[in-house]
């Protein structure tokens, strides 16, 4: 019986983050502050939708980050690409008057280009992903500041400003904010791609053994580049949502988002050495980070302790991912 359970856990990498999520959820309910009317604040519908809305940007970025990490790469540029896309969105819809559709297209295209450059430098330039995307992180931030003239651009509505259709990103449908739907749909689409489609399986193949993949006739360089393109595209999508949430395109936003995304991916059980991981795991990883900052925020825990606790959680999560840890530790 015990063996069977261990085998099941070993075969399904998302089980551990799912249990982690469940444990944290129960813990949060147990330690939830109580409102004046005696209800548990953590479990209020408003609070739960707040958590989902707050994690949706990091969540969407983490999907792309998972793809890149599966190919044993890393993408440090996502925070800057988010800022660039948010800036493009604000200027596109306000100053350049491109309208809803073309503004979104422009912002997404910016992300695709950034991702393609990172991927191409890594694949054909044979430069480590860390360095290539670090350069992109710096350059994209610079370009965003250049576009914005070092200032942030506010988004307003009405004549000569943003069209009403842009409100779709800030609206709530059936009690759930729109970005949450995007986050969940994106996760589902890419989970299907990873498991059912060829390209998805190729990511795993490259990550676990690049040489073998090459010998098997895979176009490794193109496949790897496509992972970065997806990452850039999703970062740009998160950027559009970001600008809509804050009614502002700010070239200085998104600092440190790459670290949150990497943390979510790692907590979700994806191995940084590539070839092993799941998007379901990442999904739970994102929720774990979101719930953690929510419950700490509700208790008024200050930044110093929040950061220390986050650090400890990441280490604990990675230790639990180690296959041998269970056998040795218990």
């Amino acid at each position: 019986m015990k063996k069977k359970i261990l085998l099941f856990i070993a075969q399904n990498e998302w089980i551990k983050p799912a249990f982690g999520f469940l444990g944290l959820f129960i813990l949060s309910i147990t330690f939830s502050p109580i409102s004046n009317k005696g209800t548990l604040i953590f479990l209020k519908l408003d609070n739960l939708t707040n958590i989902l809305r707050q994690v949706s940007e990091i969540g969407i970025i983490s999907v792309g980050m998972t793809l890149v990490i599966l190919t044993s790469g890393i993408d440090l540029s996502v925070g800057s690409v988010l800022a660039l896309s948010a800036t493009m969105t604000a200027f596109g819809i306000m100053d350049w008057q491109l309208g809803f559709f073309f503004t979104i297209l422009l912002a997404l295209f910016t992300g695709v280009v950034a991702g393609f450059i990172s991927g191409a430098i890594t694949s054909w330039g044979k430069i480590q992903a860390f360095i290539a995307t670090l350069s992109m992180m710096v350059a994209a931030r610079g370009f965003a500041l250049f576009i914005a003239g070092n200032n942030s651009r506010n988004i307003g509505f009405g004549n000569g400003a943003a069209p009403e259709s842009f409100r779709i990103f800030t609206n709530t449908y059936l009690g759930i904010p729109f970005p949450v739907y995007i986050f969940i749909i994106i996760t589902i689409i890419f989970a299907i791609m990873l498991n059912k489609m060829r390209l998805g399986r190729y990511f795993f193949a490259i990550g676990s053994n690049e040489e073998a993949a090459q010998l098997a006739g895979l176009r490794v360089k193109w496949i790897r580049t496509s992972a970065y393109v997806f990452s850039g595209l999703l970062a740009a999508l998160a950027g559009i949502i970001h600008s809509a949430q804050l009614y502002q395109g700010n070239p200085n936003d998104g600092v440190g988002f790459e670290l949150d995304a990497i943390a979510a991916v790692v907590i979700g059980g994806t191995s940084l050495s590539g070839g092993k991981g799941t998007l379901v795991g990442t999904f739970f990883g994102v929720l774990i980070i979101g719930i953690l900052s929510n419950i700490l925020g509700l208790h008024g825990v200050q930044k110093d302790f929040q950061l220390m606790i986050k650090g400890a959680i990441i280490v604990a999560a990675v230790l639990l991912q180690e296959q041998n840890f269970f056998k040795k530790g218990f």
Binding site: S35, N294, L298
Partner: peptide, 10 residues
């Protein structure tokens, strides 16, 4: 997010 937290905390 801070203000949202205050709102749910009533």
């Amino acid at each position: 997010a801070d203000v949202e937290n205050f709102l749910v905390q009533e």
